[in-house]
Simulated assay, not measured.
Amino acid sequence: MNNIVTSADGKKRCKWCESAPDFLKYHDKEWGFPVRDDYRLFEKLSLEGFQSGLSWRTILAKRESFRTAFHQFDFNKIARFTQKDVARLLKDEGIVRHKGKIEAVINNAKKAQEIAERHGSLAAFIWSFEPDKKKLARPQTASTSAASMALSKELKKQGWKFVGPTTVYAFMQAMGLINDHAEGCIIRAKAEAKRRSFKKP
C-alpha cells in the first residue's frame, strides 16, 4: 500500500499523482484510460520520447505548446516537415529543443503513416500488443514487460526511434493498454470500467 496516498479530498489515489499540482487532473482524467485515437497515441509516443532524461512534469507543462508546434500530432502533417521545420522547432521555447528528438518525431510520423496504411490505423497495430491481464505484474511494480519489449522491438524493426521498452511501457500504462492504477486507488475501477466497454480498433 506504499504506492497509495490519501488526497486532500480524503480519497485514496496513486502516490505519484501528489508529486506535482498538475498531476492530479492528469491521473484522474487521462492516465490508464484506453485510447484508440491515432493522433493521441502518436502524441503520447512522441512525448514519451521527449521525456527521455527529463521528468514527465516538464513535458506535461509544455504539452499544449508541443501540440501547437506539431499540429496536434497529426502524423500525416508532421511527415511532410523539412529541415526548415526542424530549425523552427529548435527556436521554439515552448517545447524541448533537442534536435535528435525533434527529428525522431518526424521520422516516426512517416513510419506511423506506413503502419496506418498496412493495418488500417496506428491504433489497430498498437492494440494488437495489448497484454494478457493474467500475465501482468502487480500494479506499479514493473518498468517493462514482455508486451512492451515486443512492441518496442517491432517499432524499432520498422525504423522508429526513441521507443525503448521502458518508454513503451510508460506509454502502455498511460494509454490504457494496461490498468496500472494501484490497488485501492479510486480511479482504478473507473479505468477498468472504461477498458471493459472499450472496443478495440
Rank of each mutant, 00 (worst) to 15 (best):
H98R: 07
H98E: 04
K99R: 15
K99A: 13
G100P: 03
G100R: 03
G100Q: 01
G100K: 13
G100W: 07
K101F: 06
K101R: 11
I102C: 01
I102V: 04
I102M: 00
I102R: 00
E103T: 08
E103P: 04
E103M: 14
A104D: 07
V105P: 09
I106Q: 00
I106S: 03
I106D: 00
I106Y: 09
I106R: 08
N107F: 02
N107W: 06
N108Q: 02
N108M: 09
K110H: 00
K110M: 10
K110E: 04
K110T: 02
K111Q: 01
K111F: 01
A112I: 11
Q113S: 08
Q113F: 07
Q113P: 04
E114D: 08
I115S: 04
A116Q: 02
A116N: 02
E117V: 07
E117L: 08
R118S: 15
H119A: 15
H119E: 14
H119T: 07
H119W: 13
H119R: 07
H119P: 05
G120K: 08
G120R: 03
S121G: 11
S121I: 00
S121W: 03
L122K: 13
L122P: 09
L122C: 08
L122M: 02
A123Y: 08
A123E: 01
A123N: 10
A123I: 14
A123P: 07
A123T: 10
A124R: 01
A124E: 01
F125P: 12
F125K: 11
I126E: 14
I126L: 12
I126F: 13
W127F: 15
W127C: 15
W127R: 12
F129A: 05
F129Q: 06
F129M: 07
F129W: 10
E130H: 02
E130K: 09
P131Q: 14
P131N: 14
P131H: 12
P131K: 05
D132T: 00
D132Y: 04
D132N: 05
K133N: 11
K133S: 09
K133M: 10
K134M: 12
K134E: 13
K134R: 14
K134P: 02
L136I: 06
L136C: 03
L136Q: 00
A137D: 10
A137F: 12
A137R: 01
A137W: 00
A137M: 12
A137I: 12
P139D: 09
P139S: 10
P139L: 14
P139W: 12
Q140R: 12
Q140L: 15
Q140N: 11
T141A: 09
T141K: 05
T141W: 04
T141M: 12
T141I: 06
T141G: 06
T141V: 13
A142H: 05
A142M: 06
A142E: 08
A142R: 10
S143L: 02
S143Y: 09
S143V: 08
S143M: 03
T144I: 09
T144W: 02
S145H: 07
S145R: 05
A146M: 08
A146F: 02
A146W: 00
A146Y: 04
A147V: 10
A147H: 05
S148K: 03
M149R: 07
M149H: 01
M149A: 06
M149C: 09
A150Q: 15
A150L: 15
A150N: 15
